[in-house]
C-alpha cells in the first residue's frame, strides 16, 4: 500500500530543494531559466532520492559530502563551467539545502 501522505511530504521537500538549487543555478551560471530548471530537476532527481533514502543520522555528513561532490561534477559537465565556479555553486546550493534539511528534520519531515 502506497503511503500517499508520505510521498506528498517528500514531494514537497524535493520541491523546496529543487527551487533553491534552481535559483542558485540561475544566478551562478547565468544560463537560461528553462535550461537551469531542467538541469536542476535532473541533477536533484539523481542525487536527492538516493540521499533521502540512504542517509541516516550516522552517515548524514558523508552522504551530504558525496551529494556535494556529485553535484559539483554534474554542474561542471552540464553547464560547461570552470571547476571552481561549479564547486562554488554546488557548495552554496548544498549548504542552503542542508540547513533547510536540518530545519525540516526538527519539524519531523
Amino acid at each position: 500500500m502506497i503511503d500517499l501522505l508520505y510521498y506528498l511530504i517528500k514531494l514537497f521537500v524535493f520541491g523546496l530543494t529543487f527551487v533553491i538549487e534552481f535559483v542558485v543555478y540561475v544566478i551562478g551560471t547565468k544560463s537560461k531559466v528553462s535550461k537551469a530548471a531542467l538541469y536542476a530537476l535532473l541533477i536533484n532527481g539523481f542525487t536527492w532520492p538516493l540521499a533521502t533514502r540512504f542517509s541516516t543520522l550516522e552517515s548524514i555528513f558523508l552522504v551530504e559530502f558525496i551529494v556535494f561532490v556529485v553535484e559539483f561534477v554534474l554542474i561542471m559537465l552540464m553547464f560547461k563551467m570552470k571547476w571552481w565556479k561549479a564547486l562554488l555553486i554546488s557548495l552554496i546550493a548544498n549548504t542552503i539545502t542542508m540547513i533547510l534539511g536540518f530545519i525540516l528534520l526538527v519539524f519531523g519531515f
Binding site: 543520522l57 555528513f61 559530502f65 562554488l88 557548495l91 552554496i92 549548504t95
Partner: peptide
C-alpha cells in the same frame, strides 16, 4: 569564501546531531 563554506558544511552536522534525533 570557499573556505568559510567548507567550514559551515563541516560544522553544521556536528552541531545539529546533539540537538535533534533524526533518521530513525
Amino acid at each position: 569564501i570557499i573556505g568559510i563554506f567548507i567550514m559551515i558544511l563541516l560544522i553544521i552536522p556536528l552541531i545539529s546531531a546533539d540537538v535533534i534525533l533524526p533518521g530513525h
